[in-house]
C-alpha cells in the first residue's frame, strides 16, 4: 500500500475527527453536568447550519463572519431549552427526560422541513472554499481549506472550553454542580443558573460546529441525524461527561472511519461497522468509556 495514500487518509481522518469531537463535546458537557442525554443535539447542529446558510443567502454574510452571531443564537437556544423544557423535567423519570429531548428533536426537524422545505441547500461561495483555491498541499497530502479551518476552530473551541471549565471561577462552579448538586448549593452556588449555563455552552459548541460545517457540507432538515449518531458513539467512547474524552474519541472515530478501509483494504461500505465494532471492543474492556467518570 502506498504511504502517500495512508498519509492522506490519516490527515483527512484527523480533520473530520476534530469536527466530530466538536459536535460531541456539547453533548458530553450537558451529560456531565446533569446526566441528561440531549437527543435533540443533531437538530441543534442542523439549526446552526441553517443559521449560517440564511446569514449567507439573506444578508450575504459569510458563515465565518456570522459565526459569533450563530454561536450567540445557539447559546440562547440552549438556555431557552433548559428554562422551557429541561428544568421542568429535572426530577421526572429518566425516560421522560429522554423523550422530552427526543421529541424536541423530532419537532425541530419537522419545523425546519415545514418552514424551509426539505430541499438541500449549501452556502454559495463561502470565503474559506475560495481561500488558497480551496485546498492546500502539504507534500503529497491535499487538505481542504474549510476542513482545516474547521479543525483549527474546533481546537480553539476546545482550548477555550478547557480554560473556562478548569481555570475560571464559573467553570469551577460548573464542576462543583456536576460533582454534587446538593453540596454545591450549600456552598452558595446557584445550580439552576449553572445548568442553564451548561446548556448554553453545550449548544453553543454545536453552533461553532454547525457554522464551520456549513461551509463544506450540504444542509437539509435531517442533516443532524447523520452526525448525531456519530456524536453519541463519540461521547460513549470518550466517556459520558468527559470533555478531553470527546476530543480523543472524536479523533479516533475520524481516524478509524477514514484510515481503516485504506489500511486493511476492505470496502469503505463497512467503515461504520468498523467504527461501531471498535467502539464495542473499547467498551467491553472499559464500559465507562476511555475517560469516563463512572
Amino acid at each position: 500500500m502506498d504511504l502517500d495514500v495512508l498519509l492522506q487518509a490519516t490527515a483527512s481522518g484527523l480533520l473530520i475527527g476534530m469536527v466530530y469531537a466538536l459536535i460531541s463535546v456539547g453533548l458530553t458537557l450537558i451529560f456531565g453536568l446533569m446526566e441528561i442525554v440531549n437527543f435533540a443535539h443533531g437538530e441543534f447542529l442542523m439549526l446552526a447550519m441553517y443559521a449560517a446558510f440564511w446569514g449567507s443567502s439573506l444578508a450575504s454574510l459569510d458563515p465565518m463572519v456570522s459565526l459569533p452571531a450563530t454561536v450567540g443564537l445557539l447559546f440562547l437556544l440552549g438556555v431557552l431549552t433548559y428554562r422551557g423544557i429541561i428544568s421542568r423535567i429535572l426530577n421526572a423519570p429518566m425516560l421522560a427526560q429522554i423523550f422530552a429531548t427526543f421529541g424536541l428533536g423530532l419537532f425541530l426537524r419537522g419545523l425546519a422541513q415545514f418552514f424551509w422545505s426539505p430541499d438541500f441547500r449549501s452556502v454559495q461561495n463561502p470565503f474559506l472554499a475560495g481561500l488558497f483555491g480551496g485546498s492546500v498541499n502539504v507534500g503529497t497530502v491535499s487538505l481542504g481549506v474549510p476542513q482545516v479551518a474547521a479543525a483549527l476552530l474546533a481546537g480553539v473551541a476546545f482550548l477555550g472550553l478547557y480554560l473556562f471549565i478548569d481555570r475560571s471561577r464559573t467553570g469551577l462552579a460548573l464542576q462543583a454542580v456536576a460533582e454534587d448538586r446538593a453540596t454545591a448549593t450549600l456552598m452558595g452556588i446557584n445550580s439552576d443558573r449553572m445548568f442553564a449555563l451548561g446548556w448554553g455552552l453545550g449548544v453553543a459548541c454545536v453552533g461553532v460546529a454547525g457554522a464551520v460545517l456549513a461551509t463544506f457540507y450540504y444542509i437539509y432538515p435531517a442533516v443532524g441525524v447523520v452526525f448525531a449518531l456519530i456524536a453519541y458513539i463519540t461521547v460513549a467512547l470518550g466517556g459520558f461527561g468527559s470533555v478531553p474524552g470527546a476530543l480523543v474519541a472524536g479523533l479516533l472515530v475520524g481516524l478509524v472511519e477514514v484510515v481503516s478501509p485504506t489500511l486493511f483494504g476492505f470496502s469503505p461500505a463497512y467503515k461504520y461497522a468498523v467504527v461501531f465494532g471498535f467502539y464495542l471492543a473499547v467498551v467491553l474492556v472499559r464500559p465507562q468509556g476511555l475517560f469516563g467518570r463512572f
Binding site: 495514500v5 487518509a9 481522518g13 466530530y20 470496502s267 461500505a269 461504520y272
Partner: peptide, 19 residues
C-alpha cells in the same frame, strides 16, 4: 466502491476511487 447511504464523510471512498 460501495458506500453507506447518508454518510458523514466519503473520504475513504473517494480515495479508493483515486487509487
Amino acid at each position: 466502491v460501495r458506500h453507506a447511504t447518508g454518510a458523514s464523510s466519503l473520504t475513504a471512498e473517494v480515495q479508493a476511487l483515486q487509487q
